[in-house]
Design a protein around this nucleic acid. Structure first.
Length: 435
RNA sequence: GUCCCCAUCGUCUAGUCAGGUCUAGGACACCAGCCUUUCAAGCUGGCGACACGGGUUCGAAUCCCGUUGGGGAUACCA
């Protein structure tokens, strides 16, 4: 969608296959077995329940001590025998009990971390599947990866990875951890779905051009000292130096994105190309064919089309808080309801009419509301008006990303949810969907 | 709690590694003026930052220490 393509993968093939984790299980299990043999790992027979209990106890005591390593020193014969007898177990990494690990990060230089505070990471789950840590190391080695470039959130697990590379007798790659994109909220937390559109589909649906988005994203973290910021991907590739990436976590600036997009529209598109872009975006025959039947019963004149369907071709509909009402409910309750609906919709795998209808009717039932009352604020959130084309169909045409965004904006229009209220609302949802 | 990372205009950033050319440069946003049938665009100008405190040095945004602030990690998720 962004015009980016990977070089190898299950769909495009490549010399380092197979590319599906399930087809590589043997590889991971072999590695785990080797680690077991060489004493770098051990079988852990603790059950999920026991572990959970331990965690709960810790939480209750407000202690944060790590895993107790009960089976770490089990004699190998016993371990072997119990595994052979079919006892369920995981395979854990035997992390040194003392000393410290020194790692090199391309951007940050040397980082030290004491072994005593790193947990005996599970490598192989009880179902035989690897955790990320094992899979990551095995795959990267097998596939000849030279540079591991990933988000900063992984920096603390490098020691475990390093330990795996050495234990398996492999050459570790160069590690480079990039800063995380942040929310534009008061404390600039890690970019989250709840507060931001994180799906590139949203940006497409909202009418941003792919090359612009690539350009903007490239600007986060690297920039030229002066001058032109509008650059094609190729230009970036030419003078990109990984070590130039800046370390502060950047906040996504939608205003700057809009400005850049305006330039792409203005400077890179002929009127014909623009018309084509509009067609690809939302004015395709196919899309219009979906909207026309919804509008037809509600058109008195052809010219009503504009007002009636404008919301299908908009990013934001700026819902009027005065219209976001629900019979017998305070605004605060409406906010919670809208938020819960949003969460329920996020769970949806397929965005089709049946699923939408089922989800929304289910919500309605659980809130013990009448359908016509319940849908009112939803109409306003989605279309910006209390009278519009059918709700389910309209949401279907708009798609998941725009629909969710509009619900979110409706929540904001009503004053939003504080952290506390958000938690309470989450509990409320859990209570309503207990069964 | 503990550990790790980070810190320049409101935001994205240049400058930091190799201290002086930095009364800190650019971009978005904002404000004003010009242009213009409106608006947008364009042009010109303005506002606006080295988190704080100690060192080192003739000299610190830049090096060191501390404080504060922020982020991340602490799973049989990735």
């Amino acid at each position: 969608r962004l015009g980016l393509q990977w070089d190898e993968g299950p769909d495009v093939g490549g010399p380092h296959g197979p590319y599906r984790q399930s087809e590589r299980l043997e590889l991971y299990q072999d590695a785990a077995y080797r680690l077991l043999e060489s004493g770098h790992a051990y079988r852990d027979f603790m059950t999920r329940e026991e572990l959970q209990e331990l965690r709960q106890r810790e939480q209750a005591n407000k202690t944060f001590e790590h895993y107790e390593r009960r089976d770490r020193d089990l004699p190998s014969e016993e371990s072997e025998a119990r595994a052979a007898a079919g006892e369920v177990h995981t395979v854990r990494l035997k992390v040194p009990l003392d000393g410290e690990c020194t790692l090199q990060d391309l951007l940050r230089g040397e980082i030290r971390r004491e072994w005593a505070i790193v947990d005996d990471q599970v490598l192989l789950k009880s179902d035989g599947f690897p955790t990320y840590h094992l899979a990551n190391v095995v795959d990267d080695h097998e596939m000849g990866i030279t540079h591991v470039i990933r988000g900063e959130e992984w920096i603390n697990s490098v020691p475990k990875h390093l330990l795996l590379y050495t234990a398996l007798g492999w050459e570790p790659p160069v590690f480079c951890h990039l800063p995380l994109l942040r929310n534009n909220d008061a404390n600039k937390t890690k970019l989250s779905k709840r507060k931001n559109p994180t799906s590139i589909h949203y940006f497409r649906d909202a009418g941003f051009l792919a090359p612009c988005l690539v350009n903007y994203l490239a600007l986060m973290g690297i920039s030229r000292a002066e001058g032109e910021e509008k650059m094609a991907l190729g230009d970036f590739v030419d003078d990109f130096d990984l070590e130039d990436v800046s370390l502060g976590g950047p906040v996504f600036d939608i205003d700057k994105l809009r400005w850049l997009n305006a330039r792409y529209i203005r400077e890179d598109l002929s009127p014909t190309a623009l018309r084509e872009a509009l067609r690809e975006w939302a004015l395709s025959d196919e899309n219009l064919d979906r909207i026309v039947p919804l509008a037809q019963p509600r058109l008195q004149t052809l010219s009503d089309w504009g007002h009636l369907t404008a919301f299908f071709f908009a990013d934001d509909v700026a819902p009027d808080p005065e219209l976001l009402t629900l019979k017998g409910k305070e605004p605060a309750e409406i906010v919670s309801i809208l938020q819960i609906v949003t969460w329920r919709l996020e769970q949806l795998r397929e965005w089709n009419l049946e699923a939408l209808e089922e989800t929304l009717r289910d919500c309605c039932d659980r809130f013990e509301l009448k359908m016509r009352d319940f849908t009112r604020p939803l109409y306003v959130a989605i279309s910006g008006s209390a009278s519009s084309t059918p709700l389910f169909d309209s949401m279907l045409v708009l798609g998941p990303d725009l629909s969710r965004m509009r619900l979110r904006r409706a929540v904001d229009a009503l004053g939003g949810l504080s952290k506390k209220r958000l938690k309470a609302t989450e509990k409320q949802m859990q209570a309503l969907w207990r069964d």
